[in-house]
């Protein structure tokens, strides 16, 4: 890891009287896996939404690779190399898994070839290769709305990976996934992202996942970062255990 890939400074955003971001300062380091934890309503997803251009902060700055991305539309931010996956997977439900991935590849390369088929040889090959990395090759021809939650989550992330991001923001990649398959899914996506050299920020509620896979943990509380550091240090902090983990484990 060397240097900050993303630098957020003084981010503030309130919805009415609720402060979703109340002075967020955060550096995301190149190559790291940064977990964001905290109770519901703490502002975790708001941070992802501000970083990806979906919400505009009322104050503060966000720089990616040294350049401000404040005020850019989500699609412009994606083109700069910041990918995003969603708590509720955003799949094209009338398409197959293969077509979902191929469409992401097409989006990366430009859609403007109105007469060439989506599943042209090169894109089909690449899509199958990506699905293979995620262990989804057997589901290539399945319609996206017929998948179980774990496969939906992985397909959602695979679509983001197909865009070749350098930074990937994942909102609760394991929520709704059966406990039995949760670790396998996280192992798969961590392996794929590490191999691709992608820096990752993920919002997570499962402390076992955080402890095992995160390089650093940021604890969100009422729109602020209450603690930041290696999992072993942060998760053993009595205040974090009382105010965040205690709540998490009973959530």
């Amino acid at each position: 890891m060397s240097g900050a890939l993303l630098e957020a400074r003084g981010l503030r955003l309130a919805f009415g009287g609720v402060k979703a971001a109340d002075g967020i300062d955060l550096d995301v380091l190149r190559g790291e896996f940064l977990a964001i934890i905290g109770p519901n309503g703490a502002g975790k997803t708001t941070f992802l939404n501000m970083t990806t251009g979906y919400l505009r902060p009322q104050a503060g700055t966000i720089a990616y690779e040294g350049e401000s991305i404040l005020g850019l539309a989500p699609r412009a931010i994606v083109r700069r190399g910041i990918g995003r996956s969603f708590q509720l997977p955003q799949l094209f439900t009338e398409h197959t898994v293969l077509e979902n991935i191929a469409l992401a590849i097409a989006a990366r390369e430009g859609l403007w070839s109105p007469l060439a088929p989506l599943l042209r040889h090169r894109w089909r090959e690449e899509a199958m290769e990506i699905l293979g990395r995620f262990g989804l090759a057997a589901l290539a021809e399945a319609r996206a709305d017929a998948l179980n939650e774990g496969a939906r989550k992985l397909t959602d992330i695979a679509m983001a990976v197909a865009l070749n991001p350098r930074l990937l923001l994942m909102d609760e990649p394991t929520s709704g996934v059966a406990a039995a398959e949760k670790m396998a899914i996280v192992e798969t996506l961590v392996r794929v992202l590490r191999e691709a050299g992608v820096t990752a920020v993920f919002v997570e509620h499962d402390m076992d996942v955080v402890e095992r896979f995160a390089d650093r943990v940021a604890v969100w509380s009422q729109g602020r970062i209450a603690a930041l550091g290696p999992p072993g240090q942060v998760l053993s902090d009595p205040a974090v255990q009382r105010e965040v983990i205690g709540i998490e484990r009973h959530a």
Partner: peptide, 23 residues
């Protein structure tokens, strides 16, 4: 059947996703 046509279908099902694919 082209990416443009498939993206049209994407507007119907997941327009947000299109934006987050840079489209």
């Amino acid at each position: 059947g082209s990416p443009m046509g498939q993206a049209l279908a994407g507007i119907k099902t997941r327009e947000t996703r299109l934006e987050f694919m840079g489209v």
